[in-house]
């Protein structure tokens, strides 16, 4: 049984000009100790997907199943229990920490709310353990977030997310606000923690080299929908969807001897408000034909490799 199953999840927002289909009919599952990468451009709904799964927002339709139990619409005490099992690390370590609470207090807060730690000494011991786990010096216990650099702040965010031994963590672009040298430290930390605690990650990012490095499986999103889903190795070796191809070829390559041949896209991501029934990528797709105006289905091309494009046999 997978740790987490997401079935036909939808999250719509009503806006003045119509309905924003931020997450539209997405399904996948995550095994224990695995990392699922979710990639896509800004505005494709990847953060909304993460937030809807961990119940920061209520789903419009579909199901989220954790350990075999449907948690899509839980409330009250049950929701609190679910929250202990699912946590999130936010993108911006500058705005996701309360500037008026010391590091110690930030990490301690979830521990206190859980009610599992009765005495102050126990709390202190546990915060010490967490700080050591993520590599924050003991001397920074009483520091405020503004005294820390981005990398250390993100470590605090990670310690806070880990505090209650969650089984699943949504990492919402946790390293994109950090410099490369610091980014590598944080990525290593996340991978080490996964080795020791068997926690599962959903790693939301727009950076394909990061996602390739950390994920077991990858979902590629475009305008609220999944366009391609496969194991990391398969996706990079046998890229099928034209959008995934364009995304991969757009990364500036550091290998100066083998510059990437670019599949260039025209235009920009279109509006997710009341999209038509056809392929949402068709407007930018160099291979689009009239067939693309019909609704697209996610098809399993080879074992575990799903693609939503009617033309892949002709293109590839």
């Amino acid at each position: 049984m997978p740790l987490l199953e997401v079935k036909n999840l939808k999250k719509y927002f009503k806006v003045a000009s119509g309905i924003n289909h931020a997450v539209d009919d997405i399904s996948f599952s995550v095994e224990k100790g695995e990392t699922l990468g979710v990639v896509g451009e800004s505005g494709c709904g990847k953060s909304t997907l993460g937030r809807t799964i961990i119940h920061l927002q209520e789903a419009t339709d579909g199901n989220v199943i954790l350990n075999g139990e449907d948690i899509t619409h839980v409330h009250g005490k049950k929701l609190k229990e679910v929250r202990e099992k699912m946590q999130i690390i936010f993108q911006d370590p500058y705005s996701s920490l309360n500037p008026r609470i010391r590091i110690e207090g930030t990490i301690e807060e979830p521990l206190r709310h859980s009610g599992k730690f009765k005495s102050k000494a126990e709390l202190k011991e546990e915060t010490n353990r967490l700080m050591e786990l993520v590599g924050i010096d003991e001397r920074l216990r009483n520091a405020y977030p503004h005294e820390l650099d981005g990398g250390r702040r993100q470590r605090v965010g990670i310690a806070r997310a880990l505090a209650l031994n969650p089984e699943f963590i949504v990492c919402d672009e946790p390293v994109s606000a950090l410099d490369v040298s610091i980014q590598a430290q944080v990525l290593n930390l996340l991978m080490d923690l996964q080795d020791s605690t068997k926690v599962s990650y959903m790693f939301v990012t727009h950076d394909l080299s990061v996602v390739k490095h950390i994920s077991d499986n990858i979902c590629v999103m475009y305008l609220g929908q999944l366009v391609e889903k496969a194991s990391t190795e398969e996706l990079f070796r046998n890229t099928l969807h034209p959008y995934t191809k364009a995304l991969l070829s757009a990364i500036p390559s550091v290998d100066i001897n083998n510059p990437m041949k670019r599949l260039e896209l025209k235009g920009e991501i279109t509006s997710p408000i009341d999209p038509g029934p056809g392929c949402r990528f068709a407007a930018r797709c160099p291979f689009a034909t009239s067939k693309c105006k019909e609704p697209q289905k996610l098809r399993e091309i080879s074992k575990g490799h799903f693609v939503s494009c009617c033309r892949i046999e002709e293109i590839n």
Partner: peptide, 19 residues
């Protein structure tokens, strides 16, 4: 060394210590 994807086949990055 900090760049993911540069060290093909190697799972750990080699970051620069400290800040």
């Amino acid at each position: 060394g900090s760049l993911p994807g540069m060290t093909e086949g190697e799972s750990r990055l080699k970051p620069i210590a400290g800040s």
